[in-house]
């Protein structure tokens, strides 16, 4: 079973489901606008006091905010819904239905849900990034754009891996819903470049919840701060996270004993 074909099928089903409820698009748009407005107010309060924050100018921080919005949209449309369903399935014993299907179980539990309207945040994020680039008044070279896209993809993969590992804890402790809140809190830290945080927090945001790589590094790619070493390091770390997540998932699965179904 080709996992990409399978993912495409689930994506289409998810999309068709959501397209039935078009008003939700406008509600989602309104919510994105509220999040954007409060973010901009925060920025303007900061720049009412200073003209740079830890070396980042206003336009550069706007770019960080854009990437943060965009990645948040990716998480809420594709990653979080799947992981929440996985938590429920482990809790209720209904994961049986996924495990008995003739496809790789990890791939299957990662693609079953898709919230199309949450992509509104991706759209809003892209607009914010566009405005930031215009304000930065730098020409983005092709290589820079490629580095930006690569950094985004690697960041998304790392975030997915962390989500999967954290969700896999459910195999042992069953109730992990509150971890969602913990993760959201930590992801909110990505609104600002990780360089502003004290060392211990920055380390956590780099290796435990790789917000640094998901948001700050792509923003660095746009603002001419990215070194080839950082990219290489990100690639290595992505690979490590993928292997680690696979390991945790497989070990966790062994502890699963279908409760009902």
């Amino acid at each position: 079973m080709n996992p990409f074909k399978l993912a495409w099928t689930y994506f289409r089903i998810g999309m068709m489901n959501e397209l039935q409820y078009r008003v939700n698009f406008f509600i989602q748009l309104l919510q994105s606008a509220i999040a954007l407005t409060t973010g901009l107010i925060g920025l303007s309060l900061v720049f009412g006091q200073v003209n740079n924050l830890a070396g980042w100018s206003r336009a550069e921080l706007l770019a960080v905010m854009g990437v943060h919005l965009l990645m948040g949209g990716v998480i809420r449309s594709a990653i979080q819904p799947n992981m929440e369903r996985l938590m429920d399935d482990v809790l209720n014993g209904t994961l049986d239905f996924a495990l008995t299907k003739p496809a790789d179980a990890q791939a299957l539990v990662s693609i079953r849900e898709f919230r199309f309207w949450q992509l509104t945040d991706v759209l809003v994020g892209l607009v914010v990034i566009g405005v930031a680039v215009a304000q930065l008044q730098v020409r983005m070279e092709v290589l820079q754009v490629l580095a930006f896209i690569a950094a985004l993809i690697m960041g998304a993969i790392m975030l997915y891996c962390v989500w999967l590992m954290v969700t896999s804890i459910a195999f042992w402790v069953i109730r992990v819903n509150d971890i969602v809140n913990l993760f959201e809190g930590l992801y909110a830290a990505g609104r600002w470049p990780v360089g502003v945080y004290p060392d211990w927090l920055r380390t956590g945001l780099t290796f435990l919840v790789p917000v640094a790589f998901a948001v700050t590094v792509p923003a660095e790619a746009m603002t001419n701060r990215l070194t080839p070493e950082t990219m290489l390091f990100a690639a290595g770390l992505t690979l490590m996270f993928v292997v680690l997540a696979r390991g945790v998932w497989l070990i966790g699965l062994r502890s699963y004993s279908g409760a009902s179904a």
Binding site: L182, G185, A189, W192, L201
Partner: peptide, 13 residues
Amino acid sequence: IGMIAEPVIYLVV
């Protein structure tokens, strides 16, 4: 703990 992230962010900034 998840909730504490929010004020810590404001505080650091």
